[in-house]
Nucleic acid binder design. Sequence first.
DNA 1: AGCGCTCGATTGGTAAGACCAATCCGGGGG
DNA 2: CCCCCGGATTGGTCTTACCAATCGAGCGCT
Lengths: 257, 257
Amino acid sequence: MAATGHCAIGTDLVRTVTESGTPPEARSSGPRRLYQDIARRIEIMLRDGGYAPGDRLPPERELAQRLGVSRPSTREAVIALEVAGIVEVRTSSGIYVRIAGPTSDIRLRHLLSGDPGPGPYEALEMRRLLEGEAAYRAATRLTENDSAALREALAAMRDDGGPVADRGNPADQAFHEQIAAASGNSVLAMMVRELWNARALPLWRRWIERTRTADMHLERVREHKQILECLNAGDGDGAREAMHAHIDAVARRFAQG
Amino acid sequence: MAATGHCAIGTDLVRTVTESGTPPEARSSGPRRLYQDIARRIEIMLRDGGYAPGDRLPPERELAQRLGVSRPSTREAVIALEVAGIVEVRTSSGIYVRIAGPTSDIRLRHLLSGDPGPGPYEALEMRRLLEGEAAYRAATRLTENDSAALREALAAMRDDGGPVADRGNPADQAFHEQIAAASGNSVLAMMVRELWNARALPLWRRWIERTRTADMHLERVREHKQILECLNAGDGDGAREAMHAHIDAVARRFAQG
DNA sequence: AGCGCTCGATTGGTAAGACCAATCCGGGGG
DNA sequence: CCCCCGGATTGGTCTTACCAATCGAGCGCT
């Protein structure tokens, strides 16, 4: 039945399966890995195939056969979708749909569709909102531990020479994440961390390179110091303002290039 | 060897395995899948093993041997970590560390450590902040399409009988996500969606059940209507206020139980 | 006839071995 | 000194096989 039914457009069939000795691999864009292809196809199948949350997908073996790939590869794809929260796997029972809509996960989107991800400006807008709020909340609930950790991060930042190639700017990131953690809301902390981790995406490398100059680094340190002072003083509004000023400055430095 | 050790009840040893180095190993909770175990062990290895971003991990084969598992299982774990953004796999080159700190991904955390995830209150706090801001921005840039989609979602919500078991409340979710999408910031939209999808976590089921009554549903519809009116009027501040009032009401209804 | 129980088919979980292709690195030739 | 070229390394994929948990259907007991 479905044997030859996969006319899929852009994706086409990656391989002709079993006995075919021809690995054409006319992959349109880059040497993507098979499990990513499969995951994307399954996701499309969920969206356009009339699947609703709670529905059960075909068994692994059938899925593999229908997609013309091996079971291990299919398993890899299913695991990717499981980690991304799109499906749920119940042992000996089946694979079930969790959410039907398009993927919300930034990383899986990037892996699956080559989506470059959100631009730095959008992310900075969000950092302004989230980290400003985090600073405000942190000011009134800062513990001695938090304060010490922030001092340490600031000192580390003073010492190192700014962003390091290939590993971002650990001290900078630590400072911001520490504030987010001190806000008392784990979701807020998680989102801030996610925004910072997104900098590893290709789009951001250039930006990080561009702001590695020594004077920009000094500016950053000064702005951080200002934020820390407000936090230590318990001045929530001041902390928010200082954070906003800092991120506005980051955006300005970025635009200068 | 552990061959005869399966006195356990249901879960006991997942495998007997060759003569592997790591026997049954007391799994604390539930019959986790092997790849999750491996992923967790690798993550610990990254954190405590002195790995920094950019470092290369041992080859798959060696990793598998060292952990006492097969290569396919190891690959599954690596893919999970890759989707979560913790490592990066370069074909024919190796597996490289992307971020060193603890996992930021809510889903992977849940999978790996059984973490129940953030509570509804924390998430509602964030929804108030994010969706309030989204409503404010959407008010000044609402297109006719957005408006139509919102009207449709509101109508759908009026029709259906409130939250449906096992699939949340599609119309409600659609309304909120549409506003977030209309905010013009894709990161904001993504985060809002992520918050809504988090409701699938076990912790939230009870809450959704509890607010299924007809009168609560009517309240929700009324509040949505209010928000939509502000949006259509281009009243940003009013939209934010209406959204805040709505989510405060949601929190209140939740607490009533 | 109704109920519980067992057994087997289904389905995910894991392992082992093999081969391919891209990459990397070092040695040899220009 | 630089370029080119192989082989070793390393991930990518397939095939096969078997184990274990689940679930439902049919059988036997009450």
